[in-house]
């Protein structure tokens, strides 16, 4: 299989002979993206079985960025997840036309909320929930592509990576949605990808403006606790989530400062996603 995926703002050429990778790509990406495009590909990636003895004993698959193999091979069962992560890796390391923040990002119409957080903070779960609500859309669950020197964000709509217990939650919220096969026992736990809403896909080319930065933290004991952060606190936390800040130098720094100066910044501890949504809609946007 050789597919050309036009995933604004990038075009990927994806090659794989692993059958369930192809199946997952067909479930996770809408037809409009899978139709053969004539645009030149920005990045060639592939996911192939490791040859030799490993074809038979505990089979493995390895990700390639063009001819390079940046990671060690992983169990075959992780193939689709590795492909998704590999694509993120390529963008994070190669595309300097954006200041990239490791963060979930969703938008209500064109007003975007950054949701940066460490693994386990519930960032992806919250992103998945918000992205499917009325008038809301997904921009990205992993990387916010900020246009340098502005507060504008380029969507990079892709399947959302859900881990462990959050899979059940999201299935309950969105029973009709499409899910990938499970990659068991990855370094992030059991991982399932979730296909974002049609509305998100339809608007995958439409820029949004970042209006708020919310550092989420899931805590079973706390219904909703909101703390407004000052600019210093916000800056330090946001800079830690910047993927390619060192590559951008001054303009990268200025972009983060500009975001901090133009956004409301909160830390939100929650156990109920709906109350976070209400807070965002009523008090922030």
């Amino acid at each position: 299989m050789n597919l050309r995926l036009e995933l604004p703002p990038f075009v990927f050429n994806v090659q794989s002979s692993v059958d369930f990778v192809e199946k997952n790509l067909n479930t996770m990406y809408p037809d409009s993206i899978l139709q053969n495009q004539q645009k030149p590909a920005d990045y060639y990636v592939s996911l192939e079985k490791v040859n030799g003895l490993r074809k038979f004993i505990r089979p493995q698959a390895s990700f390639r960025f063009d001819a390079l193999e940046p990671f060690k091979p992983l169990p075959l069962n992780h193939a689709f997840a590795s492909l998704e992560w590999g694509m993120n890796y390529v963008v994070a390391n190669q595309s300097l036309e954006y200041v990239i923040l490791h963060s979930g990002i969703v938008a209500k119409e064109n007003s975007a909320v950054l949701l940066p957080g460490p693994p386990g903070s519930g960032k992806s779960t919250l992103t998945a929930y918000l992205s499917g609500r009325d008038e809301w859309r997904l921009l990205s669950d992993e990387m916010a592509l900020i246009l340098p020197g502005t507060t504008k964000v380029q969507p990079f709509v892709r399947p959302i990576c859900l881990k462990n217990k959050s899979v059940e939650l999201v299935k309950r919220w969105y029973p009709d949605a499409k899910f990938s096969t499970t990659a068991k026992n990855t370094h992030k736990g059991d991982v399932v990808h979730f296909c974002p809403s049609d509305h998100s896909w339809q608007n995958r080319d439409k820029l949004a403006t970042v209006k708020a930065i919310v550092f989420p933290r899931y805590d079973q004991q706390v219904d909703l606790e909101i703390t407004q952060l000052n600019q210093n606190q916000g800056f330090m936390q946001l800079a830690q989530n910047a993927v390619n800040l060192n590559l951008h130098g001054q303009i990268g720094f200025d972009t983060i400062v500009n975001l901090i100066e133009n956004c409301a910044i909160f830390e939100v501890v929650y156990n109920n996603v709906e109350s976070v949504k209400n807070f965002l809609e009523q008090d922030v946007l």
Partner: peptide
């Protein structure tokens, strides 16, 4: 534009 984008990214990486 396609070429410019990749050339400029590569130049930035090398400068860094």
């Amino acid at each position: 534009h396609y070429a410019q984008k990749h050339l400029s990214n590569a130049a930035k990486l090398a400068e860094k």
